[in-house]
Design a protein around this nucleic acid. Structure first.
Length: 287
DNA sequence: GCATCAGTATTACGGAGAAT
DNA sequence: ATTCTCCGTAATACTGATGC
């Protein structure tokens, strides 16, 4: 969704008294979830094509030529692509491109670098999630300072304890962030993060809010050292931590939170509603 | 035998539309 | 008006495989 389109839609939504969209990314994601295609059509979504599936079958040997072929076929491609003969050229391109980022008319978070020679793709291969012949360079994320209001532990279905940060709400990269993960007790104590601190926060990959560290110059004298939880926040049973391991666990097998989290997991894994879980399976999960 | 890589599980977030 | 659910995506921990 271009910034022009995004602003146009929001102007209209203001006129109609509707809440504004927060950012183009989520507005586009929401548009794709619309069941009414006439609304989707009005939103003017757009796309560049980057990958020509049948390139080798069409006797195209490399990525650069496949983009040119897509253009011949009248598909929209990104006019900014460039061939780089080595990594130094790639780096120079990134340096040159970054200042132009805000003149593009649409938001980007980085640049994709691809191997040009298509016949190498199979040899280079894939991990479970990603091709190994392409990688994204991500621009540094926006860092914002806000106040850490509280730290509280939560317990998941396995009993693992995760610590969460409650933050003074702050706008980062187009969303209001109120909370962020602090992972585990070691993460917090290693950085000596304390409640009441001003902390640096960013969104990893422009999505996941993350506390980076506290701001040393703004530490208050009265700020007390943070203490890790000793008992489960749900059932108050004593937490266990295996020597040499990082995570604390609630080992109470009938901890209510563990059971409900377990049910949630079971349901989402099997794409069912809570109501659809049979009594037998609930018993099994309970055990 | 150690270091690194890869894969999986878990947990996490906010915004969006849909459902209640 | 509120709650539910989906979506995309990252960090961390741990385990097993692979490479040197």
């Amino acid at each position: 969704m271009s910034l022009e389109e995004f602003n146009k839609i929001n102007d209209e939504r203001i006129k109609l008294g509707e809440p504004e969209f927060a950012n183009p990314r989520n507005a586009a994601a929401g548009t794709l979830r619309q069941l009414d295609s006439t609304i989707v059509a009005k939103r003017n979504l757009n796309a560049f094509l980057y990958y020509y599936v049948n390139a080798l079958g069409d006797e195209i040997q490399n990525q650069y030529d496949s983009l040119q072929r897509l253009e011949q076929l009248k598909f929209k491609t990104n006019p900014e692509y460039r061939y780089c003969s080595n990594i130094a050229a790639v780096w120079a391109y990134i340096q040159e491109y970054e200042p132009k980022r805000h003149q593009l008319g649409y938001e980007i978070d980085g640049i994709v670098i691809k191997v040009n020679n298509l016949s190498l793709y199979n040899r280079i291969g894939y991990t479970a999630k990603n091709p190994k012949w392409a990688i994204a360079y991500k621009f540094p994320a926006e860092v914002v300072v806000t106040k850490l209001l509280n730290i509280f532990p939560s317990v998941g279905r396995t009993g693992r304890i995760t610590y969460n940060a409650v933050l003074e709400p702050v706008r980062i990269a187009g969303t209001i962030v109120r909370a962020a993960t602090l992972h585990n007790a070691d993460f917090i104590t290693e950085r000596d993060i304390r409640i009441g601190d001003d902390v640096q926060v960013k969104k990893a990959g422009d999505i996941i809010p993350e506390v980076i560290n506290y701001v040393v110059e703004r530490r208050q004298q009265k700020a007390k050292k943070w203490q890790e939880a000793t008992h489960c926040p749900e059932c108050q049973s004593l937490l266990e931590r295996v020597t040499g391991e990082v995570d604390q666990y609630c080992i109470n097998s009938v901890c209510p939170k563990k059971i409900t989290r377990g049910l949630e997991h079971y349901c989402s894994r099997n794409a069912m509603n809570i109501e659809g879980v049979s009594e037998k399976n609930i018993e099994r999960l309970y055990k």
